[in-house]
């Protein structure tokens, strides 16, 4: 039996949400930054624990706060991926409030935190830099190299089952 799961990708603009989705769905990457206006919805089928899951990925426009996201985009979601840019502190400085907002408004929906553009940081620096509890389960990805990209989507898929 095939399950359809809606996953919304959240985060500031310019953190690489579209690039992550593109790398996962099309195995492609571009250095050019093209702003997302509104929402792009893509689909990819994955096999998790012998189950076929259609991941419906809602790549929504970036916002400085989830509160500013259009509410209808978040309706009926099965999982959130919160993406930040490891090289830009303003994209993760407010993460505690963002997580508090999600757990209050969507208490039973899994949220995964993802630090993108990890190729621009050394591994040592990354783990040393993000010591806060909100980053304890954080996966560090690079949409450019593909590092950890599949893992992120498989992880959230598993959590939605």
């Amino acid at each position: 039996m095939t399950h359809s799961k809606k996953i919304v990708i959240l985060g500031h603009f310019g953190v690489g949400k579209t690039s992550l989705v593109r790398q996962f769905v099309e195995s492609a990457f571009s250095e050019d930054y093209l702003v997302t206006v509104g929402v792009h919805v893509k689909k990819k089928t994955v096999e998790i624990e012998s189950k076929t899951i259609n991941l419906i990925l809602w790549d929504i426009e970036g916002n400085t706060s989830i509160k500013k996201a259009r509410e209808s985009y978040l309706l009926g979601t099965h999982g959130f991926i919160y993406v930040f840019d490891v090289t830009h502190p303003e994209t993760y400085e407010n993460i505690a409030n963002e997580m508090a907002f999600l757990s209050e408004k969507y208490p039973h929906i899994p949220v995964d935190v993802v630090g993108n553009k990890a190729d621009l940081f050394t591994e040592e620096f990354t783990s040393d830099f993000f010591k806060d509890k909100h980053f304890s389960q954080c996966l560090f990805t690079s949409a450019k190299t593909g590092e950890n990209v599949v893992e992120v989507f498989k992880k959230i898929a598993l959590q939605t089952l």
Binding site: S4, V39, H40, K43, N54, I56, L57, S72, G76
Partner: peptide
């Protein structure tokens, strides 16, 4: 027709209010 509709079909039985999704590509 499109994954967007695949996602909203799943909400039709649970949501009774009118909903607008602006700027859908």
């Amino acid at each position: 027709f499109h994954p967007f509709f695949e996602a909203i079909v799943g909400t039709l039985t649970s949501v009774s209010d009118d909903i607008t999704y602006p700027c859908v590509n």
